[in-house]
Design a binder for these strands. Structure first.
Lengths: 385, 385
DNA sequence: AACCATTACGCAAACGTTTAAGATAGATAG
DNA sequence: CTATCTATCTTAAACGTTTGCGTAATGGTT
């Protein structure tokens, strides 16, 4: 046995082996009644670890300035307890040493990250990204940061994203649900935490959570009335999944318009799809076989409306002569496609801005009142109708 | 003076006032030689503060389980030191109490957030968002999270985003610079930190940082050769700002193609723009006045190419009869516009994926080798040429 | 001289984790 | 029976901040 000294009495006598723990020999000094191992070299100490990240910490500044950490922290935060001299000295020193505060540590003690999280279904179209722009602009003005997670229209990804963000990463959550989110238990579970949640665009009906959405019902009613005014009687309606609130609302608006103008509803003219390319094509092809023939297609998805125009053109169907096509949303592609798409502008950017404003109001004033706002849009008539 | 007791000797005698600090009366006990204030009620204690956030912590679990915090932590991490009984007990308890680890605290001690940050110029087109999709998909497979910041093509926002993210929020940074980023000092300053950086698509030339980009030079050469093959002699080239690496590379490719095929360059056919709507329109209008007339427009921005098609159509110019138009990038809008746009597919998604792969390789294996990869794209010929 | 105010600091606890290493009981070997 | 081993705990330091409160020095009033 190598001469092992007891760390207490410094004597090598009366030392016994005392088992192996995690592959390391342990010893026992009978004199001192003390168990120990020979300490490993890589034990963390403030010296070695400071070099670990390469970043300067408050401690580094304090040491070179010859003051306490508290003083440095206060100087950098303009606390009145610190003399003007010390303050400016510390500040210039921090600058020199390129100090940048560790936000994790700050957030941990402040219990706030000054960051709001956004969960959004996808960024493949300008539709959602323009909401994002609105959010970011409002946030930037208030000094908040934005982090974005794409759920990719996948319910489980949405859940994973929520959990990741809600575990103290953000001060508030802005969420727009996936196409397939029909249960909101995952959200309800998070509601007992102190962090406010605001839903936007695609919202849940019954949860007591603030929500900002489009005027789906009135909008759809306006669109259908526009088609009826153009003389359409056989209006096919392309809808999203039944669970989706926007599907329900827009259908309702459509039905109201029909009813008001005495147009009878043909259930065959309603199609629920998941907005995928083939499902849309199939739905349209099915409509085209109907008799009496349809004279309009109203797609509650702008993207699908554009796709439908392409499909009809391939079939040599004249737009708007034979069939009028209208979308809902107002995206950039609607202006590019030929004929240009008539659509309902849901003012996505404003929805984002307003959702963010409501969030900031809750964060800053601590006001936890549940608000439910509808952003009014407007019809944009173009060539396709 | 109210009867104030000394916290040490519990006697109200011999207590003197000793100044006011921050609006609070201070006292001094002559017996104990001890200064004190009457402590404020809202002093933080583990009891009150635990309730503060409403979240269960390891301490809460430890207390109700009657074990130490260390044991709980180890049980949840399947550390072998913990007995099977204890482990399953703790786990079920944690489940019951709806425990979710505080990621800030975890990251602080682990020095890793398991998150990679992406800074991207904008999300207004599918161009960048498809890179994002690639990034997210690769990340998801490795259990990393993604946070996204939009710089909005603004240099200062880019700097602010970098600083925010690099202060310990992320393990690695993926960045695509703004249109106007011509100095990279802000990036160089971050390079001494341990956080790896990978540039993608728009990269800097001289910084020793890993980069993934398109085959800009070869791509542009291919496009121009395609136009030459179609008989074009007067090819106008719409470029981005001169500082941009993609501008330089694509121009170089264009020139090579001209040279190889003996087409002489007319400097009037080159235009540098910031991709804004009016600048592009102005450039095109200027070209249209030239003589001999131009017979093709090659825009290195896909979005501008689509815009140019719209502009030429408005002027009743036949595409591709009078002027052939080609873009670079391959976005969704290129398929929608009429005539459909010939373009060079830069495989944006693959660029994102590869950038992310390189990053993960650096994070996981610790390999800090600087890589510089070009993703090969390919020409997509459509109606506009 | 006795008391009180003010200024400008330092100490240490707290935020919620992770993780060396110390401790202890019971089992096993010689 | 003694020395050692194993399994399973607990203790405490560390991550980098913020902040309540203690305190020394100095100066001003009675």
């Amino acid at each position: 046995m190598p001469r092992v000294k007891c760390p207490k009495c410094q004597q090598p006598e009366r030392i016994l082996k005392s088992g192996i723990v995690r592959n390391k020999q342990r010893y026992y000094c009978k004199d001192c009644d003390y168990h120990f191992v020979i300490p490993s070299a890589r034990k963390r100490t403030r010296e070695t670890s400071a070099r670990d990240t390469g970043a300067t910490s408050l401690r580094d500044i304090a040491r070179t300035a010859g003051v306490s950490i508290a003083t440095v922290s206060r100087a950098l935060h303009d606390h009145p307890d610190i003399s003007a001299q010390t303050r400016s000295f510390i500040k210039s020193l921090a600058d020199e040493m390129n100090y940048q505060p560790n936000m994790l540590a700050q957030s941990l003690v402040n219990r706030s990250t000054h960051t709001i999280g956004v969960i959004i279904p996808n960024l493949n179209t300008t539709f959602f990204s323009s909401m994002l722009s609105g959010i970011q602009q409002v946030c930037a003005r208030s000094g908040y940061r934005v982090v974005i997670c794409q759920s990719d229209e996948d319910h489980n990804t949405e859940i994973a994203n929520i959990q990741a963000l809600m575990n103290n990463m953000i001060d508030g959550l802005l969420i727009c649900h996936t196409l397939h989110t029909d249960t909101f238990e995952h959200l309800r579970m998070q509601m007992n935490k102190r962090i406010p949640i605001v839903q936007f665009y695609r919202v849940s009906e019954d949860l007591p959570i603030s929500k900002i959405h489009a005027d789906d019902e009135a909008g759809a009613e306006t669109v259908t009335e526009h088609l009826i005014a153009k003389g359409c009687k056989r209006i096919a309606l392309l809808l999203g999944p039944k669970n989706l609130s926007i599907t329900q609302k827009r259908l309702k608006g459509h039905l109201q318009a029909l009813k008001r103008h005495g147009v009878t509803l043909d259930r065959k003219l309603l199609a629920h799809v998941d907005f995928s390319h083939e499902k849309v094509t199939r739905a349209v092809d099915h409509w085209l076989k109907l008799s009496p023939a349809i004279d309009a297609i109203f797609s509650i998805s702008e993207k699908c409306a554009v796709q439908i125009i392409g499909h009809l053109k391939k079939k040599k169907i004249r737009i708007p002569r034979q069939i009028r096509v209208v979308g809902f949303g107002n995206e950039y592609t609607g202006e590019i496609v030929e004929p240009q798409l008539t659509t309902y502008d849901v003012r996505t950017r404003e929805i984002g801005e307003e959702a963010c404003r409501v969030m900031l109001e809750q964060l800053i004033s601590g006001n936890r009142e549940v608000v439910d706002k509808r952003i009014a849009g407007k019809l944009i008539v173009r060539q396709s109708s």
